[in-house]
Design a protein around this nucleic acid. Structure first.
Length: 266
DNA sequence: GTCGATGTTATCAA
DNA sequence: TTTGATAACATCGA
């Protein structure tokens, strides 16, 4: 579900409501979703205040009054929502932060591919740069280092951090690049086009509140609308919105990949 | 009931 | 070192 635009939307809908809040209690902790493995997250959070909520790649980062931090990753099916304490408990609720009489933050994640990661005062492990802040030159240099298919390289979080299956396909279509092209074989013109396309698509998706294909909702429980604007993702066998050619679905690096054979010829 | 698919990523082996 | 395959999991639809 959640790639950079979805996570950004969750952060935006969450931050203003919970920044400055005191954490009264922590419950429903699913301990096998917590990293480090034996870390007891509840006492670390209880009695702290949330100073701010920010995004790094697909991670929702909470900074506490102690300057310690933790982040939540939503995996494929995670939802992080603001709820009233008396709201019915959804199945697969794996964390509840009690922020007072009227406010809770709840993590619901059926597949449990998400994670609750305590950082403390340490930094994030090494992941790639934010795609929205990346210069064409930096972008080209990172892509030149790998021979994998460009689609696969875009999904590698150490190359750029935050792009997932939807926005990789969408950006490649916009840049008119075939997803199987080796990353290191892209021309200067192509890497520049892809850099621009990636930023354009991500910014557009953020404006639309993200893509809701199935589970994704923002912190207020609302769906995104960007799926209405998808050029190729989840549109196999449908006509390309640019040229009317039929969109094709293939599997690349184990992930379904959608492209237009005419706009994105090899 | 079975099979294959789903927006992610850590881990392992070649 | 790099990269491809697999597993972690629940749910839905054919």
């Amino acid at each position: 579900m959640p790639e950079l635009p979805e996570v950004e939307t969750v952060v935006r809908t969450l931050a203003s409501r919970v920044a400055g809040s005191f954490i009264h209690a922590v419950s429903h902790v699913r301990h096998d979703m917590v990293t480090p493995a034996q870390f007891d997250i509840a006492p670390a959070l209880t009695g702290r205040s949330i100073v701010r909520v920010t995004r790094r790649a697909k991670r929702i980062v909470f900074t506490l009054d102690t300057q310690e931090r933790f982040y939540i990753h939503l995996g494929m099916t995670g939802r992080l929502t603001i709820e009233a304490p008396d709201a019915p408990l959804r199945k697969h609720t794996h964390l509840i932060l009690d922020l007072g009489d009227t406010l809770q933050i709840r993590l619901v994640d059926p597949r449990r591919f998400g994670a609750i990661v305590w950082l403390g005062l340490t930094d994030h492990a090494r992941i790639g740069p934010e795609p929205l802040l990346l210069s064409p030159k930096q972008f080209a240099a990172r892509l030149a280092r790998t021979r994998r298919a460009i689609k696969t390289a875009l999904l590698d979080q150490t190359v750029v951090a935050g792009v997932g299956n939807i926005y990789a396909d969408e950006a490649l279509h916009r840049a008119r690049i075939h997803p199987s092209t080796p990353a290191c074989a892209l021309s200067d013109t192509q890497t520049r086009a892809l850099n621009r396309a990636l930023k354009f698509v991500l910014n557009r998706a953020i404006k639309a509140g993200g893509s809701s294909i199935r589970d994704y909702v923002n912190a207020a429980g609302e769906r995104g609308a960007f799926q209405m604007q998808h050029a190729v993702y989840d549109r196999a066998c449908e006509p390309c919105r640019t040229c009317r050619e039929t969109i094709v679905r293939i599997v690349l690096g184990g992930r379904s990949t959608h492209y237009c054979p005419k706009c994105q010829s090899e």
